[in-house]
């Protein structure tokens, strides 16, 4: 049972660990109880270290990876689907793109609203806390840019792999820096509805992507690989789950 409690952050364990342990000893330790403790522990770990706004930013970044997977998967799909059968996948694809634009606008709006508080924090010594993560993010961005140039010049598979890895790392590094900054940003009332908009657009994109896949798969069963589909769906689901946790924390 003590092992289960290790999932919780140390500070939380020090305060509530004994009480939770006493309660677990008084209750039958079923799989439902174990799952509840694991899920709650993960939630405390996530929400205890990352502010709700940071969670939404992380969620968007994770979802973007899924979106990139969908974008790559759907390249040249018109070639394998006859013109008469393109109506449904075309609408589904357009819906995904429209939802992506709205979701991105909501994220940008949230960031813009936090800027005044962010600038105030920078002026009062916040830069020293952010300098290292921003330098790392900048370095990974430069590496990704260099790899992209190499891909453009040489069409090299190694450079392409370096580009993909460094681009993902760069996205996560910037998100980490932004989430750190969000810790000290004042609460903005509009963040809750904006985060809810982000979740809604994620759900629309997942539904749109699923409809697109079903429609294309009906005409070209081998066009989308199982691995591509699994990776895209995993990132999209994980992003949506994270964003939902962020929204719940923002509204609490």
């Amino acid at each position: 049972m003590k092992l289960l409690l290790r999932i919780y952050p140390r500070r939380w364990r020090e305060r509530y660990g004994d009480e939770l342990l006493a309660l677990l000893e008084a209750e039958p330790l079923t799989w439902r109880v174990r799952a509840d403790v694991v899920a709650s522990g993960l939630r405390e770990r996530l929400c205890g270290t990352v502010p709700p706004q940071g969670l939404v930013l992380w969620a968007w970044s994770v979802f973007v990876i899924g979106g990139m997977g969908f974008q790559k998967t759907s390249e040249h799909w018109q070639v394998v689907v006859a013109a008469n059968d393109r109506a449904v996948p075309t609408v589904a694809f357009d819906v995904v793109q429209a939802a992506a634009a709205i979701g991105s606008a909501a994220v940008l709006a949230g960031v813009t609203l936090a800027l005044p508080s962010f600038v105030r924090d920078l002026r009062s010594g916040g830069w020293s806390r952010l300098r290292r993560p921003i330098l790392i993010a900048s370095a990974t961005t430069l590496l990704a840019a260099a790899a992209l140039v190499a891909v453009a010049l040489h069409h090299d598979i190694v450079a392409a792999s370096i580009f993909v890895v460094s681009a993902v790392f760069s996205l996560f590094a910037w998100t980490h820096a932004a989430a750190l900054a969000a810790r000290r940003v004042a609460k903005v009332r509009a963040h809750a509805p904006l985060a809810l908009t982000v979740v809604a657009t994620m759900i629309v994109m997942m539904v749109g992507a699923a409809v697109w896949f079903a429609a294309v798969n009906a005409h070209a069963p081998s066009f989308v690989g199982a691995a591509q589909l699994a990776v895209t769906a995993t990132f999209m689901l994980a992003g949506t789950a994270l964003a939902t946790t962020g929204v719940r924390s923002l509204r609490a």
């Binding site: 939380w12 509530y16 509840d36 403790v37 709650s40 405390e44």
Partner: peptide, 12 residues
């Protein structure tokens, strides 16, 4: 309520 859910809510 699950024990984890209960103590999560208590802490908040």
């Amino acid at each position: 309520l699950g024990p984890g859910t209960l103590y999560g809510a208590i802490s908040r």
